[in-house]
């Protein structure tokens, strides 16, 4: 597929309140845009639904991490005590599983937590030092007190003027184009 190369990343609009942004996000979706993203200083209730997001993969990754940690932790202790270096101490069972539970538990938690954090970062594509959205003029407010939406140029429905007018129609402030680099 030939990618449409352009020096424009998208068109950005700004809102003052979370409600306006959630409303606008739903409208943009209704209008048929698919490649757009909202930028908010804190997670907004109802925004994932308005943008049509489905469940994410973080819980599954965490579950897998936890299972690996738990089974691996127990399996390792079993291997150490039964296979690698068995010690017969007055005929006591080698696989003394109750004594292995604390370490198994801790390793379950450890691996699940590491999977949750690094899974989340990997799915989000972080760390990513630069992103075109940082070229937007007032974007520093996205980490403080303003709510942004950016419709990306790669969207099939994207048309610079029409999309900008559409965003203004949703009562977005400071509608402007974002340079790609």
């Amino acid at each position: 597929m030939i990618q449409h190369r352009s020096h424009i990343y998208g068109v950005i609009g700004e809102f003052e309140s979370p409600e306006q942004l959630v409303h606008a996000a739903a409208k943009i979706r209704e209008e048929g845009y698919r490649y757009y993203e909202c930028y908010t200083p804190f997670p907004l209730e109802g925004l994932p639904e308005a943008m049509g997001m489905r469940r994410n993969m973080v819980p599954l990754i965490t579950l897998i991490g936890g299972l690996v940690g738990g089974l691996g932790g127990f399996g390792f202790q079993y291997w150490v005590n039964v296979i690698s270096y068995p010690m017969n101490i007055a005929g006591r069972p080698l696989n003394s599983w109750p004594a292995f539970i604390p370490v198994t538990f801790e390793l379950t938690i450890l691996c699940a937590s590491l999977s949750a954090v690094f899974g989340m970062l990997a799915l989000n594509g972080l760390p990513q030092p630069h992103h075109p959205i940082f070229n937007a003029p007032r974007f520093s407010h996205a980490s403080s007190d303003r709510f942004f939406v950016c419709i990306q140029a790669r969207d099939k429905k994207f048309h610079l003027e029409a999309t900008a007018r559409f965003l203004q129609g949703l009562s977005a402030h400071h509608v402007s184009e974002v340079q790609d680099d």
């Binding site: 997670p43 925004l47 943008m51 993969m57 973080v58 989000n124 972080l126 992103h131």
Partner: peptide
């Protein structure tokens, strides 16, 4: 490189 993207927040909140 956190940019407050809604999709990022979604996964962030799960994590």
């Amino acid at each position: 490189g956190w940019r407050g993207s809604a999709r990022h927040w979604h996964r962030y909140q799960s994590a």
